[in-house]
Protein backbone atom coordinates (compact mmCIF):
# COMPACT_ATOMS: atom_id res chain seq x y z
CA UNK A 1 0.00 0.00 0.00
CA UNK A 2 1.53 3.28 -1.08
CA UNK A 3 -1.18 5.43 0.47
CA UNK A 4 -0.68 8.20 2.99
CA UNK A 5 -4.02 7.70 4.70
CA UNK A 6 -6.77 5.12 5.03
CA UNK A 7 -10.04 6.98 4.54
CA UNK A 8 -12.38 4.71 2.57
CA UNK A 9 -12.29 1.12 1.38
CA UNK A 10 -12.96 2.32 -2.18
CA UNK A 11 -9.39 3.65 -2.29
CA UNK A 12 -7.97 0.14 -1.73
CA UNK A 13 -6.80 -2.05 -4.59
CA UNK A 14 -6.44 -5.79 -4.38
CA UNK A 15 -2.67 -5.35 -4.06
CA UNK A 16 -3.08 -2.85 -1.23
CA UNK A 17 -5.34 -5.22 0.66
CA UNK A 18 -3.17 -8.28 0.14
CA UNK A 19 -0.04 -6.41 1.17
CA UNK A 20 -1.59 -5.42 4.50
CA UNK A 21 -3.05 -8.88 5.08
CA UNK A 22 0.26 -10.57 4.27
CA UNK A 23 1.90 -8.31 6.78
CA UNK A 24 -0.83 -9.07 9.33
CA UNK A 25 -0.04 -12.75 8.91
CA UNK A 26 3.66 -12.05 9.48
CA UNK A 27 2.82 -9.99 12.57
CA UNK A 28 0.63 -12.76 13.96
CA UNK A 29 3.39 -15.32 13.34
CA UNK A 30 6.13 -13.31 15.03
CA UNK A 31 4.81 -10.35 17.04
CA UNK A 32 8.14 -9.88 18.81
CA UNK A 33 9.79 -8.89 15.53
CA UNK A 34 7.50 -5.84 15.43
CA UNK A 35 7.72 -4.86 19.08
CA UNK A 36 10.02 -1.84 18.69
CA UNK A 37 9.29 -1.07 15.10
CA UNK A 38 7.99 2.45 15.76
CA UNK A 39 9.42 3.17 19.20
CA UNK A 40 9.29 6.85 20.08
CA UNK A 41 6.38 7.54 17.72
CA UNK A 42 3.03 8.76 19.00
CA UNK A 43 -0.44 7.84 17.75
CA UNK A 44 -3.33 10.20 18.54
CA UNK A 45 -6.67 8.50 19.16
CA UNK A 46 -9.26 11.12 18.23
CA UNK A 47 -12.63 9.67 19.12
CA UNK A 48 -15.42 12.22 18.77
CA UNK A 49 -17.96 9.50 19.39
CA UNK A 50 -18.05 6.94 22.17
CA UNK A 51 -16.16 3.76 21.35
CA UNK A 52 -14.37 1.36 23.59
CA UNK A 53 -13.26 -1.54 21.48
CA UNK A 54 -12.08 0.18 18.31
CA UNK A 55 -10.16 2.65 20.42
CA UNK A 56 -8.67 -0.10 22.60
CA UNK A 57 -7.81 -2.14 19.53
CA UNK A 58 -5.85 0.73 17.96
CA UNK A 59 -4.30 1.59 21.33
CA UNK A 60 -3.12 -1.97 21.83
CA UNK A 61 -1.90 -2.34 18.23
CA UNK A 62 0.11 0.89 18.47
CA UNK A 63 1.71 -0.12 21.79
CA UNK A 64 2.68 -3.50 20.36
CA UNK A 65 4.62 -1.57 17.69
CA UNK A 66 6.45 0.38 20.39
CA UNK A 67 4.36 3.51 19.89
CA UNK A 68 2.84 5.69 22.58
CA UNK A 69 -0.73 6.87 22.33
CA UNK A 70 -2.53 10.03 23.34
CA UNK A 71 -6.30 10.45 23.49
CA UNK A 72 -8.83 13.22 23.80
CA UNK A 73 -10.69 12.13 26.91
CA UNK A 74 -14.44 12.38 26.93
CA UNK A 75 -15.98 14.19 24.03
CA UNK A 76 -18.11 16.18 26.47
CA UNK A 77 -15.16 17.63 28.31
CA UNK A 78 -12.95 18.36 25.31
CA UNK A 79 -12.83 21.50 23.19
CA UNK A 80 -15.25 19.90 20.73
CA UNK A 81 -18.11 20.87 22.97
CA UNK A 82 -16.69 24.40 23.07
CA UNK A 83 -17.38 24.66 19.35
CA UNK A 84 -13.92 24.29 17.86
CA UNK A 85 -13.99 23.06 14.26
CA UNK A 86 -12.66 19.62 13.40
CA UNK A 87 -10.27 21.29 10.97
CA UNK A 88 -8.70 23.28 13.81
CA UNK A 89 -8.73 20.39 16.26
CA UNK A 90 -6.78 18.05 13.98
CA UNK A 91 -4.31 20.78 13.06
CA UNK A 92 -3.54 21.20 16.75
CA UNK A 93 -3.35 17.47 17.45
CA UNK A 94 -1.04 16.98 14.46
CA UNK A 95 1.59 18.75 16.52
CA UNK A 96 1.32 16.14 19.27
CA UNK A 97 1.43 12.98 17.18
CA UNK A 98 2.93 11.16 14.21
CA UNK A 99 -0.40 9.72 13.04
CA UNK A 100 -4.10 10.19 13.80
CA UNK A 101 -6.93 7.72 14.18
CA UNK A 102 -10.28 9.46 13.85
CA UNK A 103 -13.80 8.44 14.74
CA UNK A 104 -16.41 11.11 14.11
CA UNK A 105 -20.22 11.24 13.84
CA UNK A 106 -20.26 13.11 10.50
CA UNK A 107 -19.77 11.48 7.11
CA UNK A 108 -16.68 12.81 5.35
CA UNK A 109 -14.93 13.84 8.60
CA UNK A 110 -11.84 11.75 7.87
CA UNK A 111 -11.53 13.17 4.35
CA UNK A 112 -11.67 16.66 5.80
CA UNK A 113 -9.15 15.78 8.53
CA UNK A 114 -6.70 14.34 5.99
CA UNK A 115 -6.88 17.57 3.99
CA UNK A 116 -5.81 19.53 7.04
CA UNK A 117 -2.81 17.58 8.30
CA UNK A 118 0.35 16.09 6.85
CA UNK A 119 0.56 13.03 9.11
CA UNK A 120 -1.25 9.77 8.24
CA UNK A 121 -4.96 9.66 9.09
CA UNK A 122 -6.92 6.45 9.64
CA UNK A 123 -10.70 6.65 9.44
CA UNK A 124 -12.04 4.60 12.36
CA UNK A 125 -15.64 5.38 11.40
CA UNK A 126 -17.27 8.53 9.99
CA UNK A 127 -21.00 8.58 10.73
CA UNK A 128 -22.80 6.23 8.37
CA UNK A 129 -19.89 6.47 5.95
CA UNK A 130 -16.95 4.09 6.10
CA UNK A 131 -14.90 2.02 8.55
CA UNK A 132 -12.07 0.65 6.41
CA UNK A 133 -9.77 -0.74 9.14
CA UNK A 134 -12.67 -2.94 10.25
CA UNK A 135 -12.90 -4.14 6.66
CA UNK A 136 -9.25 -5.12 6.61
CA UNK A 137 -9.73 -7.29 9.67
CA UNK A 138 -12.96 -8.69 8.20
CA UNK A 139 -11.10 -9.62 5.03
CA UNK A 140 -8.28 -11.13 7.05
CA UNK A 141 -10.82 -13.33 8.83
CA UNK A 142 -12.45 -14.37 5.55
CA UNK A 143 -9.06 -15.04 3.97
CA UNK A 144 -7.88 -17.23 6.84
CA UNK A 145 -11.10 -19.26 6.69
CA UNK A 146 -11.91 -19.43 2.96
CA UNK A 147 -9.45 -17.42 0.90
CA UNK A 148 -10.68 -14.35 -0.93
CA UNK A 149 -11.73 -15.74 -4.30
CA UNK A 150 -14.69 -17.74 -5.48
CA UNK A 151 -16.65 -16.49 -2.51
CA UNK A 152 -20.33 -16.03 -1.85
CA UNK A 153 -20.92 -13.50 0.90
CA UNK A 154 -24.21 -12.52 2.52
CA UNK A 155 -24.32 -9.20 4.34
CA UNK A 156 -27.36 -8.74 6.56
CA UNK A 157 -28.94 -6.14 8.83
CA UNK A 158 -28.69 -2.37 8.66
CA UNK A 159 -27.15 -1.88 5.24
CA UNK A 160 -28.21 1.74 4.99
CA UNK A 161 -26.36 3.19 7.97
CA UNK A 162 -23.86 0.38 8.57
CA UNK A 163 -20.44 1.81 7.82
CA UNK A 164 -18.74 -1.56 8.19
CA UNK A 165 -21.09 -2.84 5.48
CA UNK A 166 -20.29 0.02 3.10
CA UNK A 167 -16.56 -0.55 3.44
CA UNK A 168 -16.75 -4.33 3.19
CA UNK A 169 -18.98 -4.26 0.09
CA UNK A 170 -16.60 -1.86 -1.66
CA UNK A 171 -13.50 -3.87 -0.76
CA UNK A 172 -15.00 -7.17 -1.91
CA UNK A 173 -15.34 -5.81 -5.45
CA UNK A 174 -11.57 -6.37 -5.75
CA UNK A 175 -12.13 -10.11 -5.47
CA UNK A 176 -14.15 -12.75 -7.23
CA UNK A 177 -17.07 -12.46 -4.82
CA UNK A 178 -20.82 -12.77 -5.20
CA UNK A 179 -22.47 -10.39 -2.78
CA UNK A 180 -25.97 -10.87 -1.37
CA UNK A 181 -27.47 -8.03 0.64
CA UNK A 182 -30.21 -8.99 3.04
CA UNK A 183 -32.19 -6.28 4.81
CA UNK A 184 -35.60 -4.77 5.38
CA UNK A 185 -36.69 -2.52 2.51
CA UNK A 186 -36.14 0.62 4.63
CA UNK A 187 -32.51 -0.27 5.39
CA UNK A 188 -31.26 -1.18 1.90
CA UNK A 189 -27.80 -0.14 0.74
CA UNK A 190 -27.60 3.59 0.05
CA UNK A 191 -27.54 4.84 -3.54
CA UNK A 192 -23.88 5.84 -3.34
CA UNK A 193 -22.75 2.33 -2.34
CA UNK A 194 -24.90 0.68 -5.01
CA UNK A 195 -23.47 3.13 -7.52
CA UNK A 196 -19.91 2.04 -6.71
CA UNK A 197 -20.84 -1.64 -6.88
CA UNK A 198 -22.44 -1.19 -10.30
CA UNK A 199 -19.47 0.86 -11.53
CA UNK A 200 -17.09 -1.95 -10.69
CA UNK A 201 -19.36 -4.57 -12.23
CA UNK A 202 -19.80 -6.36 -8.91
CA UNK A 203 -22.02 -9.43 -8.82
CA UNK A 204 -24.68 -8.43 -6.32
CA UNK A 205 -28.27 -9.20 -5.39
CA UNK A 206 -30.59 -7.75 -2.79
CA UNK A 207 -33.01 -9.78 -0.68
CA UNK A 208 -35.44 -9.28 2.16
CA UNK A 209 -35.23 -12.91 3.35
CA UNK A 210 -32.12 -14.71 4.53
CA UNK A 211 -33.84 -18.03 3.73
CA UNK A 212 -33.58 -17.24 0.01
CA UNK A 213 -29.79 -17.44 0.04
CA UNK A 214 -28.53 -19.02 3.24
CA UNK A 215 -27.74 -22.32 1.53
CA UNK A 216 -25.39 -20.63 -1.00
CA UNK A 217 -23.27 -18.64 1.42
CA UNK A 218 -19.63 -19.11 2.42
CA UNK A 219 -19.80 -16.13 4.74
CA UNK A 220 -22.72 -14.51 6.57
CA UNK A 221 -21.88 -11.05 7.91
CA UNK A 222 -24.48 -9.95 10.43
CA UNK A 223 -24.90 -6.36 11.60
CA UNK A 224 -27.08 -4.78 14.23
CA UNK A 225 -30.34 -3.03 13.42
CA UNK A 226 -30.63 -0.11 15.79
CA UNK A 227 -33.79 1.06 17.46
CA UNK A 228 -33.04 4.70 16.55
CA UNK A 229 -33.60 3.87 12.87
CA UNK A 230 -37.30 3.34 13.44
CA UNK A 231 -39.85 5.98 14.35
CA UNK A 232 -41.96 3.36 16.10
CA UNK A 233 -40.70 0.89 18.70
CA UNK A 234 -43.15 -1.88 17.76
CA UNK A 235 -42.09 -1.58 14.14
CA UNK A 236 -38.46 -1.91 15.27
CA UNK A 237 -39.17 -5.08 17.26
CA UNK A 238 -41.13 -6.61 14.39
CA UNK A 239 -38.48 -5.86 11.74
CA UNK A 240 -35.37 -6.55 13.83
CA UNK A 241 -36.84 -9.93 14.84
CA UNK A 242 -36.75 -11.06 11.22
CA UNK A 243 -33.02 -10.45 10.95
CA UNK A 244 -31.89 -12.43 13.97
CA UNK A 245 -30.17 -15.75 13.63
CA UNK A 246 -29.85 -18.73 15.93
CA UNK A 247 -28.46 -22.23 15.60
CA UNK A 248 -31.70 -23.38 13.99
CA UNK A 249 -31.47 -20.70 11.25
CA UNK A 250 -28.09 -22.16 10.32
CA UNK A 251 -29.35 -25.71 9.84
CA UNK A 252 -29.90 -24.96 6.14
CA UNK A 253 -26.43 -23.48 5.77
CA UNK A 254 -23.31 -25.05 4.30
CA UNK A 255 -21.15 -26.88 6.79
CA UNK A 256 -18.32 -24.44 6.06
CA UNK A 257 -20.36 -21.28 6.55
CA UNK A 258 -18.49 -18.64 8.52
CA UNK A 259 -20.65 -16.29 10.59
CA UNK A 260 -19.15 -12.88 11.27
CA UNK A 261 -20.24 -9.74 13.12
CA UNK A 262 -18.34 -6.47 13.70
CA UNK A 263 -19.47 -6.56 17.38
CA UNK A 264 -20.81 -5.51 19.74
CA UNK A 265 -23.86 -7.67 19.16
CA UNK A 266 -27.02 -7.33 21.15
CA UNK A 267 -29.41 -10.10 20.24
CA UNK A 268 -29.06 -10.43 16.47
CA UNK A 269 -26.95 -13.57 16.94
CA UNK A 270 -28.31 -15.92 19.59
CA UNK A 271 -25.75 -17.30 22.07
CA UNK A 272 -26.41 -20.86 20.81
CA UNK A 273 -24.61 -19.91 17.57
CA UNK A 274 -21.42 -19.39 19.61
CA UNK A 275 -21.30 -23.14 20.21
CA UNK A 276 -21.37 -23.97 16.49
CA UNK A 277 -18.36 -24.24 14.18
CA UNK A 278 -19.79 -21.35 12.17
CA UNK A 279 -19.06 -18.71 14.79
CA UNK A 280 -15.97 -16.63 13.96
CA UNK A 281 -16.84 -13.23 15.41
CA UNK A 282 -14.53 -13.43 18.40
CA UNK A 283 -11.66 -14.58 16.19
CA UNK A 284 -12.60 -11.67 13.90
CA UNK A 285 -12.35 -9.16 16.78
CA UNK A 286 -8.99 -10.60 17.86
CA UNK A 287 -7.72 -10.17 14.30
CA UNK A 288 -8.02 -6.44 14.90
CA UNK A 289 -4.65 -6.49 16.62
CA UNK A 290 -2.37 -7.98 13.92
CA UNK A 291 -4.31 -6.23 11.15
CA UNK A 292 -4.19 -2.79 12.78
CA UNK A 293 -0.51 -3.35 13.61
CA UNK A 294 0.12 -4.16 9.95
CA UNK A 295 -1.89 -1.14 8.85
CA UNK A 296 -0.15 1.30 11.21
CA UNK A 297 3.23 -0.19 10.33
CA UNK A 298 2.52 0.30 6.63
CA UNK A 299 1.29 3.88 6.99
CA UNK A 300 4.19 4.85 9.28
CA UNK A 301 6.64 3.28 6.87
CA UNK A 302 5.11 5.24 3.97
CA UNK A 303 5.24 8.46 5.98
CA UNK A 304 8.86 7.85 6.98
CA UNK A 305 9.79 7.08 3.36
CA UNK A 306 8.15 10.33 2.29
CA UNK A 307 10.10 12.26 4.94
CA UNK A 308 13.31 10.58 3.77
CA UNK A 309 12.63 11.61 0.21
CA UNK A 310 12.20 15.23 1.25
CA UNK A 311 15.54 15.16 3.05
CA UNK A 312 17.34 13.50 0.14
CA UNK A 313 16.07 16.08 -2.26
Amino acid sequence: MRQDHLITATQLSRDDIEAVLDRARAVADDPAAYADRHAGRVLALCFFEPSTRTRMSFDSAAKRLGMNTVGMGDVDSSSVSKGESLSDTVRVIEGYADALVLRHPSEGAATLAAENVSVPVVNAGDGAGQHPSQTLLDLHTIRENHGLDDLTVGIMGDLKYGRTVHSLAAALTNFDANQHFISPESLRLPRSVRFDLHETGAQMREHTDLEDVIGELDVLYVTRIQKERFPDENEYHRVAGEYRIDAETLEDASEDLTVMHPLPRVDEIAPDVDETDHARYFEQAHNGIPVRMALLDTLMENAEAAEGMEVDR
Binding site: T8, G83, S85, L86, S87, H104, P105, S106, E107, G108, A109, T111, L112, E115, D126, G127, A128, G129, R191, S192, V193, F195, D196
Partner: peptide, 29 residues
Protein backbone atom coordinates in the same frame (compact mmCIF):
# COMPACT_ATOMS: atom_id res chain seq x y z
CA UNK B 1 -24.93 14.68 8.40
CA UNK B 2 -22.14 15.50 5.93
CA UNK B 3 -19.10 17.21 7.46
CA UNK B 4 -19.52 20.03 4.89
CA UNK B 5 -22.80 20.89 6.64
CA UNK B 6 -21.14 21.10 10.04
CA UNK B 7 -19.58 24.40 10.96
CA UNK B 8 -16.28 23.74 9.18
CA UNK B 9 -14.20 26.19 7.15
CA UNK B 10 -14.50 24.11 3.98
CA UNK B 11 -15.93 24.52 0.48
CA UNK B 12 -18.12 21.74 -0.81
CA UNK B 13 -16.67 19.74 -3.67
CA UNK B 14 -18.65 17.49 -5.99
CA UNK B 15 -17.42 15.14 -8.67
CA UNK B 16 -19.52 15.10 -11.80
CA UNK B 17 -20.68 11.51 -12.43
CA UNK B 18 -22.85 9.85 -15.09
CA UNK B 19 -26.14 11.57 -14.37
CA UNK B 20 -25.47 13.80 -11.43
CA UNK B 21 -22.84 14.96 -9.00
CA UNK B 22 -21.30 13.27 -6.00
CA UNK B 23 -20.04 14.78 -2.74
CA UNK B 24 -16.28 14.28 -2.39
CA UNK B 25 -16.67 14.10 1.38
CA UNK B 26 -19.64 11.83 2.09
CA UNK B 27 -20.19 10.26 -1.39
CA UNK B 28 -23.86 11.27 -1.50
CA UNK B 29 -25.15 11.41 -5.07
Amino acid sequence: NCITNADEPVDTRFDVVADGVRCDYCSTI
